[in-house]
Simulated scan of single mutants.
Amino acid sequence: MAKTVDSLFVYGTLRRDARHASHAMLARGATLLGDATLNGAAIYLVGEYPGVVPSDNQEDVVHGEVYRFDPKSDLLTLLDEYEGCLGPRPLYTREPLPVTLAQGETVTAWVYVYNHPVSKKSRIASGDFLFPYG
C-alpha cells in the first residue's frame, strides 16, 4: 500500500515571508516543519509568482518551506484551485517529490510544478523567489 503524502513544499506566494494573503489559507490547515530545498529543479518568474520545473542538473536547487497537513482535510483541494491545477490546461500539476529539510531529513512532499513552457521566462538564479539575487 502506498504511503500517504502529508507534506507540501511551497516556494512562492504560499511561503510565510511572502506576506501574501494566500499563506493564511495554508497556515490555517497545516503546520510548518521548516525550511527546505528541492534538488534537480529550477525556478522561473512566470508573472508575479514563480513556477518550478524539473532540471537535469541535480545541483539546481529551489528554496522553500515544508508544511505537514491532515491528508483527510480539504486543504489540497483548496490549494489545487488556488494554484490553477484544474481544467484542461492546468497552470500547475501537483507531484510528490523528495525534498530536504534544513536539518537534513528527506521527506516526500507535494510540489506544484509549472505546467507550461519556460523558454521565454526569467530564471531566478538564486533558486529563491523571496531572495532572487542571493
Rank of each mutant, 00 (worst) to 15 (best):
K120D: 14
T108G: 00
E83D: 06
L91I: 10
A24K: 14
T93A: 07
H116A: 15
Y67C: 04
D74N: 14
T100Q: 15
S55A: 09
R89M: 10
L101Y: 02
V118N: 02
Q58R: 10
P88M: 09
Y114D: 04
G34S: 04
V62H: 01
Y82V: 08
E59N: 14
L130F: 03
K121G: 00
T108V: 14
L75E: 05
V5K: 08
D17V: 01
P71C: 11
Y114M: 03
S73F: 10
H20E: 09
L79Q: 08
Y11F: 08
R16A: 15
L79R: 07
V52F: 02
G134S: 10
S122N: 11
G51D: 05
T100D: 01
P98K: 11
A27Q: 13
P88Q: 12
W110I: 02
L32E: 15
A41R: 00
V111R: 09
A41S: 12
G127Y: 07
K121F: 07
R94K: 13
A109I: 07
S126A: 12
G12S: 02
D17R: 14
G34C: 04
P88D: 14
D80Y: 09
V62T: 03
N115E: 06
L14R: 05
S126I: 04
Y112T: 07
V118S: 01
R28T: 11
Q103R: 13
F131H: 13
V52P: 00
A41C: 08
L130P: 04
L38A: 07
V62C: 02
R16S: 14
L97D: 06
V46K: 05
G104W: 10
T4M: 12
T13H: 04
P96V: 08
G40V: 07
V107D: 04
L130D: 03
G29L: 10
Q103M: 11
P96Q: 06
G47E: 10
L75H: 03
V99Y: 12
H116L: 12
A2H: 13
L14W: 09
L86R: 12
Y49G: 03
S55Y: 02
R123H: 04
H63Q: 13
